[in-house]
Computed example of a mutant assay.
Amino acid sequence: MIEAAMIWNEPNNKSHWDPELDPDWSRFGQCVTLAGQAIRAVNPDLTRVLGGMSPIDQLWVQRMQGHGALDHVDVVAVHGFPLDWNLWQIHEWPAKVAEIEAVTDKPVWVTEVGVGSFGAEEVQVFGVQKTAELLVGRVPRIFWYSLFDLPQEWGATTRHREAEGSSYYRHFYMGLIRADGTPKPGLEAYAPHAADMGLMQWFHYQDPRLDDAVAWMKRLGVRHLRTGLSWADSFRPDALGWFDRQMEALADFDTTVTFCFTPEHLGPGAHHTSPPHDPQQFADFCAAMIERYAPQRVKAMPEAVPTAIQSTLT
């Protein structure tokens, strides 16, 4: 059910980790170390992914190495949105991957790449096609963000919301399918690449789109999915019931699950971007989720070959 566990989401983005509370990312490094150790203790065969960085930053990777965090992950991940938020061109994707490969011996995955339809749906079509051309075969895993547009009434998970200006409103146009369930032209452009370029789709607590998402992904032939299990949501009523339903629905996909979002009562910032008071509690959450959804499989011992058959083989 789970092929990889990602530790946090965009930790060098102030919308997802508060740099005022952890300016040198040392507390984040401790979270990665403890979570990586906890995941490995439960299932040593599971791939551990350092939360996808955004922006793509060599110095941040080196800082994580200095904190010892890279010793407890197997993959380094990057996120990029060159036609929406980043200050570089889409054609630079291979060079951006190479920048990170130059400072680590870990494989580099692109765990979020997307182009929205905020300006024009034709721009998204171009973005899908060009992204596939540049990245398929270049990196082991690619996840397109995302399948569905985010409904405007839900609000985007950022720290500063509307104060971000047009950057905030682009969050609502990143899907290949509109919020009303109708496909965009970008979906047709994505379909030929679905087996090689997976999807990244966040599912909100009790998300009504879950079953539709599964149906669309199976229809498209998607094999690889990235999603999240929110530590903050784990304190909601019947959280495990929701997590069970989500993971059962996604059982047919090779899933990278992201663990992130600090419960408000467990961090000094009283916000999901806050480092936790006790990073071991985050590690314990990661371990519990792996134990529940991706425990180590015991390899069956081969059956003994009967003596009569053995004699025919010698």
Rank of each mutant, 00 (worst) to 15 (best):
V49L: 05
G36A: 04
R292T: 01
G36I: 00
P151K: 07
I290W: 02
L210A: 00
V108N: 03
S166H: 02
P185V: 06
Q37G: 10
Q30K: 11
M64H: 05
Y168W: 07
D71K: 15
P82H: 09
P44G: 06
C260K: 08
L266Y: 08
P208G: 13
N13H: 10
V305W: 06
P44S: 04
E264C: 10
Y205R: 09
I100C: 04
H16P: 05
Q62C: 13
E101W: 07
R63T: 15
P295T: 02
V75F: 01
E20M: 14
R226T: 13
E153Y: 14
V103L: 03
R292D: 00
D212W: 08
L134Y: 11
W109N: 10
P82D: 01
E3C: 02
Q58D: 10
R27G: 02
E121C: 13
A132Y: 00
Q246L: 15
F261M: 10
H72M: 03
L266F: 05
W8T: 09
L210V: 05
M64F: 10
V125L: 00
A120T: 03
H204Y: 13
T273P: 00
D244T: 08
R63H: 00
V32D: 04
A294S: 11
S274W: 03
A213W: 09
G127S: 08
P268M: 00
A77E: 07
Q296L: 15
R27N: 06
G186P: 07
F282Q: 05
W25H: 14
S54H: 14
A283W: 05
D84M: 01
G221V: 08
E20C: 08
L150V: 09
A213E: 02
S54I: 10
F259W: 11
H204K: 14
H193W: 08
D284R: 14
V108S: 06
Q124P: 04
P302T: 00
E92I: 04
E20A: 15
S146L: 09
R141G: 09
R40A: 09
M1A: 12
K14S: 13
P107H: 12
E101F: 08
M289K: 05
D207C: 06
P275Q: 00
V110S: 04
T314V: 10
D74R: 10
V136L: 13
L220K: 12
E264N: 13
T33P: 02
G186Q: 06
H72L: 05
A304V: 11
E162H: 14
G186Y: 06
Y169V: 04
V113W: 00
G137E: 06
V108L: 04
P55W: 05
P276V: 03
V73F: 01
L313V: 13
P82S: 12
G155E: 12
Q129I: 09
R40Y: 10
H265R: 04
D211E: 14
F118L: 12
H79N: 12
H91C: 08
W144K: 00
T182D: 03
R138H: 12
P140N: 14
M174Q: 14
L87Q: 06
P94Q: 12
A251T: 05
Q58C: 09
E162V: 15
G269Y: 00
L176F: 07
L210D: 04
R209V: 14
D254M: 04
R236P: 03
H193E: 08
S311P: 11
W85A: 07
V298C: 03
Y293W: 05
